[in-house]
Design a protein around this nucleic acid. Structure first.
Lengths: 195, 195, 195, 195
DNA sequence: AATGAATGAGGGTTCATTCAT
DNA sequence: TATGAATGAACCCTCATTCAT
């Protein structure tokens, strides 16, 4: 990758971050290109130099975070660990990512109101790919006898719901540290599935 | 209340329902006064006869659903039951309400992006009042020795998160009935807190 | 038609006229909704109350003038006259219309750069329907032996071209009156086709 | 002219051609500097090295074609031929130029929407210089008794109008060749003026 | 001689809101 | 009560133009 391409890539990343922030604070329709740009001391027009349009920009924001999530969980699944350990690690990773990348992460909840056509399909596809990783871990746990006979899908929904909700209440100034939260969540949720 | 006032009240309720629907489908900024009105075969102008402005209308939508939720849980708390039973009932009620009143219920998740000033404060206050009901039940359960030594706040967050997430995936055409979901959720979540 | 509908219709006509004017002076891309509106002391927004968007508005401008032209020529063709008389009348009518409705008439020349899809097809269809009326008159003239053996299509093109070019140079302040022009044109063009 | 200047001149010509093309396809406002440049695998910025701005570029496009037209007709007028022959040659030349240089030629129709001030005046001046050549030929024909007593100006307008309209319908894939069209046009138009 | 990047003005469009009727 | 009509602010997006390199 040439120097120039690197610079462009870097700028794009900056814009994606800014977009994620604004998106997180204002929601899709509330987020204006103007504000996304001005936080970087750029003008609207410049953003259009890097991204085709608003939907494209916001779509890529989604992609970034989904990609990271998927890589993380797939790496965990590939480990030589027991399902219990895998589930704990997946929960901890998800929470830490959700907290440390709060703006980016908070966005992926309601793509329906935002995207249409191919973009929506792609996002839904990747989201469900991510979800199925949890299913796989749960299934393995049940088969190996580590987990009790649970309803896989509903259990996955409980776990994801509990974790994603963190966005709604977490504040870095709160009493509990990121690590404590991840720790407590994984313990509690594991208790729910263990025999 | 005079007949006239009753009629007005009824109309307001209709509008609130319509607003909730549109809000649910399109999100705050995507929901237009035009559409809210036209679903009732009214015109935009008429809606303004009943509500001061969009924020006011949406605020009242929130209020309706929060009120119902609060009444329900307070009624449960007043019952002469064990914390375990109370928690189960609270979970079941919440889920059934969330599902049967999906449009109205789905809205309450991100008030920050929507409201400001007094309205926001009022909503946050009531939401946290509702949340504290769960805390109280959990606390009572721990004190009475029914629940294990849990982190009250985080546990409450897990429970609420898991339940509110239902909005994201529940469909009346899905495999599981409302009752099954409520049943499985309460079992799983109870397993998490019970000794 | 109710009074209200009449009023709307009237307003639409006003807007169409204004649009034709601006279109005539500035061309499609040069014509702004702002200016179309401001000439009627309206605001851009109001125009959107009557027309879906710019293309729709400009499309209807085209339709108005094409409709008038077609009605006129079809009426002439239905007359019990010789081809020579019909052709003369068609020429005179076209010119008088082109002059008296200059702004509206000037527009129909380059729809390709303006419209797309269905709109374009519809316009092209009606334009060619109009053109074929001339063909029919010419054909009849040849068959009846009034006109010499001419190339129908090219002759029609000469006639239409000569007439539409009037837009480019006619000014009400010029030496020749509308009637003189129509008179001279029909004489000259008839001379071209007569035996 | 130095080699360097020649190279610049050549590049300018290329750009003018490209500009004419785009202009022809999209109209003045529809033609973007971006597209004019990209067809030559250049960037917008480079075009500005050769031309001051868009109006300047488009103005020069006009000039090129008007110059060619003028040279051609002036050469014809200088010939030792009868007015009839001159008129026929002028018509044939005009048509062949209009067809073979379609993009460039199509542009000169509506300068009013495009230019202002000096540029517009210059163009109008040259256009009318060209038109007057036809007048001169016609006048000569009348004086010499070859043409009937025609209205010079209106006749010229008919001829120019018929010829310029070719832009609107000519296609290289059509039934008639360039030569046939030129032939038929000159015959028909001559018939109109001949005694 | 060329270009990548940035800008800002302007245009199309939407929509909450108002107000006379 | 209800609504038709109008408004204006705000938003997305395009594009001519500039300028450092």
């Amino acid at each position: 990758m040439s120097l120039r391409e690197k610079k462009i890539e870097k700028k794009k990343q900056e814009i994606l971050r800014s977009a994620a922030e604004v998106l997180y604070e204002k929601g899709y329709h509330g987020a204006t290109m103007e504000e996304i740009a001005s936080r970087l001391l750029m003008t609207k027009g410049s953003v259009y130099y890097y991204f085709k349009n608003k939907e494209d920009l916001l779509y890529q924001v989604h992609m970034v975070i989904i990609d990271i999530s998927l890589q993380t969980i797939e790496e965990i699944m590939a480990r030589d660990q027991s399902p219990t350990e895998k589930l704990r690690d997946a929960i901890v990773s998800h929470i830490e990512l959700a907290i440390s990348e709060k703006p980016m992460f908070a966005i992926i909840d309601n793509p329906d109101q935002t995207f249409s056509g191919e973009h929506l399909q792609e996002i839904v596809k990747l989201r469900s790919k991510y979800a199925h990783c949890f299913d796989d871990i749960l299934k393995e746990g049940v088969e190996k006898g580590e987990f009790s006979k649970i309803d896989i899908k509903l259990t996955r929904m409980i776990i994801l719901g509990a974790m994603n909700w963190i966005q709604q209440w977490y504040s870095p100034d709160g009493e509990r540290s990121k690590e404590e939260i991840a720790q407590t969540f994984s313990e509690s949720l594991l208790k729910m599935v263990l025999k």
